[in-house]
Structures are given as structure tokens and as C-alpha cells.
Amino acid sequence: MEAIDRVLINHEVGRSVALDLGLSSEGMLFNWIRDYRKNGYNVIDKPIGRPRKKIITKHNQKKIKPEDKKIKELEEELLYLRAENAYLKALRELAIKDQKKQK
């Protein structure tokens, strides 16, 4: 918080603040400032270590509505048909080129 205040309030140069505090780079300080602004000008301490895996249970599992399932199926089918259409167009163009070469 001291480093952030020195840059934002006292208008000190980030490089000099980073050197005074012994940070490995001034980029670290600017990351802190970016996170500070993103969090509504609050310092949030991140927990140390790997984040815990979320355990999926019946209570916190997303329920998929039948309409959503149907929409997803239709989107997948549309994607497949578009790919098939592009393939057939390319195949037709190759056949036309082959016919022109034979003439």
C-alpha cells in the first residue's frame, strides 16, 4: 500500500519507488497499481498457494434446461453443416480446375 500511495498520491516515479523498496522490477509495482484500481481502490490480499478445486455436487451443479440443450445441438449441427458446405465448395472448384487442365 505504501508503494502504491507513493506513486499515486505523492506522484513519485515508479522506477525509483521500485528501486527503493527492492522490487525485482517496476512492472511488479504497476501490476499492483492496476489491480488496486480494478478492485475499486482496495488492496485485496490473494491467498498463497494453489486455488482449491470446486467440488461439483447436485446442489451446486448447473441445471441444463431442455431448450438450452436443443440450442446447443442446433449450433453444433450448424457448425458441422457449414464445414461440410465449405469442403464441398472447395472440392467442386478442384474438379473445375481439373477439367480445365484436361481441355
Rank of each mutant, 00 (worst) to 15 (best):
L78S: 12
R92M: 07
D5Q: 13
K53T: 12
S24K: 14
E73P: 01
G14H: 00
I4N: 02
N31E: 12
E26M: 08
M28D: 01
V7C: 04
L21H: 08
A90W: 09
S16Q: 14
E67N: 13
S25G: 06
F30M: 13
R82Y: 12
Y80H: 07
L29W: 09
W32F: 08
M1Q: 13
I9S: 05
K97P: 00
K62G: 00
Y87T: 09
Y87K: 13
N85Y: 12
E73C: 06
E75Y: 02
A95H: 06
V43L: 07
R6D: 04
P51Q: 05
K65R: 15
E73G: 01
K65D: 12
N10G: 01
A90F: 08
H59M: 12
I9W: 01
Y80Q: 07
R82Q: 15
P47V: 02
A83V: 12
D5M: 09
S25W: 02
L79I: 10
A86G: 00
N42D: 07
V43Y: 15
P51L: 00
A83Y: 02
D5V: 05
D45V: 13
G40K: 00
L19Y: 10
I96P: 00
K72W: 12
K89V: 07
H59I: 11
D68K: 05
R6P: 00
E67H: 13
N39W: 08
I55W: 05
G40E: 04
N39M: 06
Q61H: 07
I9C: 03
L19P: 00
K63P: 02
E73V: 09
V43P: 01
L78G: 03
D68S: 13
Q61V: 03
L79A: 15
K62Q: 08
A3P: 03
E12P: 04
A83I: 05
I9E: 11
R37C: 11
E26H: 15
L19A: 14
E77D: 12
G14A: 11
Y80P: 01
I56T: 10
R52H: 08
A18V: 04
D20F: 02
Q99R: 15
G14D: 03
E93C: 00
A3C: 09
K100A: 10
K101D: 08
K97T: 11
M28A: 14
S16Y: 07
K38P: 01
Q61S: 14
E75N: 14
Q102G: 01
L78E: 08
K38W: 10
V17H: 02
V7D: 01
Q99I: 11
L79N: 13
I71D: 03
N42M: 10
L91P: 00
I4Q: 05
K100L: 13
K46T: 13
K63V: 14
Y41P: 00
E84N: 08
K54A: 09
Q61D: 08
G27Q: 09
K58W: 05
H11C: 09
N60G: 06
L94V: 06
A18Y: 02
